[in-house]
Design a protein around this nucleic acid. Structure first.
Lengths: 123, 123
DNA sequence: TCCTTATTGATAATCTGTTATCGAAAAGGA
DNA sequence: TCCTTTTCGATAACAGATTATCAATAAGGA
């Protein structure tokens, strides 16, 4: 036997699906406890790591803030980071092309765009 | 007497000027030791904090990497982050407008763009 | 130059986020 | 159901970045 299906892993995936936006480990814990009340933070970290390795979820890196996670398989997009509640929200797909801004000599592989301000709730 | 002019602070500002790109505290230490060989890392952190507070330098926040610092007073611009040497480089001014990408209900205040790939040296 | 006191340099302490440990619980094949 | 082995949950330990401590040094005004 290799990997087992646990209620905990399902709860974590369920939390990310339900939230519809990138969550940090602590946020995942809160959401997923709806499904598994006794869920522990170590289990969240463990499963998040495995799910990233297996390609089921994706790491969202943010300037000046800790990592969030979102379900994989979405097309290229970026995020909005609320300075008040610290929540992160998904934006619609990105069609920007930054090759023109890239100085000669540099080889551009990817880009990250983050918008800041207030989310609807905090406005 | 309130604040004194020290060789150390001058060396730190000199390092940032000479490098011409955002530096982290450890990088600042290396560069600035050209001017003050016995410079300590605590002094770098102390001065960096004061210089940010006094508005002489600016914090550069990067996704998935620790903070860098650059001289203040430049016009709005973004950065290129080399995945090989971890160096950060300044790009020419940004004229992007992301208000069209901002969903209704959100209030956009600022944005951050980071390009990734290889710098000329690492290419 | 002298003296006061901000600043330095070395290092211990702290902080935040994450991983390791280990006995208890539970997945799932026989 | 039983048994093996993965996974869990609580918490200790760790890692990297940053800040605090404190005796020694050095600005810079008198």
């Amino acid at each position: 036997m290799t990997q087992r299906n646990t209620r905990q892993r399902e709860a974590i995936l369920g939390a990310l699906g339900q939230a519809g936006r990138p969550l940090g480990p602590q946020e995942i814990l809160v959401f997923a406890r709806q499904f598994v009340p006794r869920l522990g933070i170590a289990t969240v970290y463990r499963n998040v790591r495995n799910l990233v390795e297996s390609g089921q979820i994706r790491v969202v890196l943010l300037p000046g803030s800790s990592d969030r996670y979102e379900l994989a398989g979405k097309h290229h997009h970026h995020h909005f980071h609320c300075r008040e509640c610290d929540g992160v929200f998904e934006l619609d797909g990105c069609d920007e092309d930054f090759s023109g801004v890239t100085p000669s000599g540099f080889s551009l592989e990817r880009h990250e765009v983050t918008l800041y301000g207030l989310c609807p709730v905090c406005s």
